[in-house]
Amino acid sequence: MHDTLAVFIEYGPQFLDGLAETIWLTLLGALCALAAAVVLQAAAASPWRPLRALVRLYTELILGLPILVLLYGIYFVAPSFGLRLSAVAAGILTLTLYYSPYMAEAIRAAIAAIPAGQVEAGNAIGFGWFAVARRIVLPQAAAIALPALVGLLIGLAKDTAILSIISVKELSYITKQVVSRTFMPFEVWAGVALIYWVCLTALEVAMRRLERHLTRHRRAVS
């Protein structure tokens, strides 16, 4: 136990750098994936058929690929077609491409859960398309979509560890380095598992708070 602590103190700055990289990748990856998901969902609801077909094709393609294959494709194969991204950019793009169809589906289901009558009622009292979206659909849909989106966010956070294989220097990459220096695989990986667990649990708790906040109207009436 004492040795383990000594390793984490000696390599502390490196672990912190790795953790910062992991957190940053998670935040940026989640934001990009969410933005892409909104675009995908908007395109899927478009009246223009070829666009809808394109979204469906893209979704089917991504859902049929393991994230590892997607990552290798973007990092090692895409340069042959003129797209050379840094390891971090390739990692963010992979997380975005992989998670956006899932997030789009969560958004679609949440919007579909809003009764059509509410939209019609909104129109009847003179709300335009934007006002209906902002004042009626979005506040309710966000609360409905949140639990699914949080699950995906945590999945995305965990998948950042895969990026270590293309030399992204996040927490798992640093851990492999430290293990190769200290030869203490059990102690170091156990400690790092604890770090991941604490961070992901904190993220989940924070998101649950947000969910309670978004659903406060449901409690207010009871």
Partner: peptide, 11 residues
Amino acid sequence: ALAAVLGASAA
């Protein structure tokens, strides 16, 4: 979870 991790590290 903490107990499991510490247990693993002591194994």
